[in-house]
Amino acid sequence: MTRKQITRLIIIAAVLYLCGTVVSLRYRPELDGIEYEEIPSIEYERTLPRHSYKWEALETYQGKKSYQYDNIKAKWGIDVSKHQEKISWQKVKKDGIDFAMIRVGYRGYGNGAIKEDPTFTYNMNSANRVGIDVGLYFFSQAISVEEAKEEAQFVLQQIQGHKVTYPIVFDMEFVAGKDRITHLTREEKTQITKAFCEVIEQAGYKPMIYGSRHWLQDVITLEELSDYEVWLAEYSDVPSFPYAFKMWQYTDSGTVDGISGGVDMNLWFVEE
Rank of each mutant, 00 (worst) to 15 (best):
residue 153 Q to V: 02
residue 208 M to T: 03
residue 180 R to K: 15
residue 257 D to Y: 07
residue 14 A to Q: 04
residue 21 T to C: 11
residue 185 T to W: 13
residue 108 G to N: 14
residue 187 E to C: 01
residue 30 E to K: 12
residue 179 D to N: 14
residue 215 W to Q: 14
residue 31 L to G: 08
residue 182 T to F: 11
residue 268 W to N: 04
residue 216 L to D: 02
residue 40 P to F: 10
residue 133 D to N: 06
residue 168 I to V: 15
residue 269 F to E: 05
residue 7 T to D: 08
residue 201 E to W: 06
residue 214 H to C: 05
residue 249 Q to T: 07
residue 119 T to N: 10
residue 158 Q to W: 06
residue 62 Q to S: 10
residue 36 Y to R: 07
residue 138 F to G: 15
residue 263 V to D: 00
residue 160 Q to C: 10
residue 69 Y to I: 00
residue 81 S to Q: 03
residue 2 T to K: 08
residue 58 L to Y: 13
residue 61 Y to H: 14
residue 66 S to D: 01
residue 89 W to N: 06
residue 20 G to D: 07
residue 50 R to H: 13
residue 218 D to Q: 03
residue 26 R to A: 04
residue 172 M to G: 13
residue 174 F to C: 02
residue 90 Q to C: 00
residue 52 S to C: 04
residue 2 T to W: 03
residue 71 N to Y: 04
residue 7 T to A: 13
residue 19 C to N: 09
residue 47 T to M: 10
residue 150 E to H: 07
residue 21 T to V: 15
residue 1 M to G: 09
residue 136 L to F: 12
residue 14 A to E: 05
residue 110 G to M: 01
residue 212 S to A: 14
residue 156 L to Q: 10
residue 77 G to Q: 01
residue 232 L to N: 00
residue 123 N to W: 13
residue 2 T to D: 06
residue 250 Y to R: 06
residue 227 D to V: 01
residue 86 K to H: 11
residue 169 V to Q: 06
residue 22 V to Y: 05
residue 180 R to W: 12
residue 146 E to K: 15
residue 94 K to H: 11
residue 133 D to W: 01
residue 141 Q to A: 08
residue 111 N to V: 12
residue 258 G to W: 08
residue 261 G to D: 01
residue 115 K to E: 11
residue 60 T to D: 06
residue 265 M to C: 14
residue 16 L to I: 11
residue 50 R to E: 05
residue 67 Y to C: 00
residue 210 Y to S: 10
residue 93 K to F: 06
residue 213 R to D: 03
residue 102 I to Q: 10
residue 55 W to N: 02
residue 10 I to A: 14
residue 176 A to L: 13
residue 27 Y to W: 10
residue 63 G to K: 10
residue 234 E to Q: 15
residue 51 H to E: 04
residue 12 I to D: 02
residue 233 A to R: 07
residue 144 S to K: 11
residue 103 R to A: 01
residue 221 T to C: 05
residue 257 D to P: 03
residue 224 E to G: 05
residue 140 S to P: 00
residue 174 F to K: 14
residue 81 S to D: 03
residue 86 K to R: 14
residue 141 Q to I: 06
residue 74 A to S: 09
residue 180 R to Q: 10
residue 202 Q to T: 00
residue 26 R to G: 00
residue 227 D to R: 13
residue 255 T to Y: 06
residue 97 I to Q: 01
residue 63 G to F: 07
residue 67 Y to W: 06
residue 210 Y to F: 15
residue 202 Q to P: 02
residue 234 E to S: 09
residue 79 D to I: 09
residue 198 E to I: 02
residue 123 N to E: 10
residue 165 T to R: 15
residue 89 W to I: 09
residue 42 I to H: 13
residue 134 V to I: 06
residue 147 E to D: 08
residue 76 W to F: 05
residue 53 Y to I: 02
residue 45 E to Q: 02
residue 190 T to V: 13
residue 116 E to C: 02
residue 228 Y to F: 07
residue 99 F to A: 00
residue 251 T to G: 14
residue 248 W to C: 05
residue 192 I to P: 00
residue 122 Y to L: 04
residue 185 T to Y: 11
residue 47 T to K: 15
residue 237 D to V: 04
residue 23 V to C: 10
residue 194 K to V: 05
residue 37 E to F: 09
residue 106 Y to L: 07
residue 192 I to E: 04
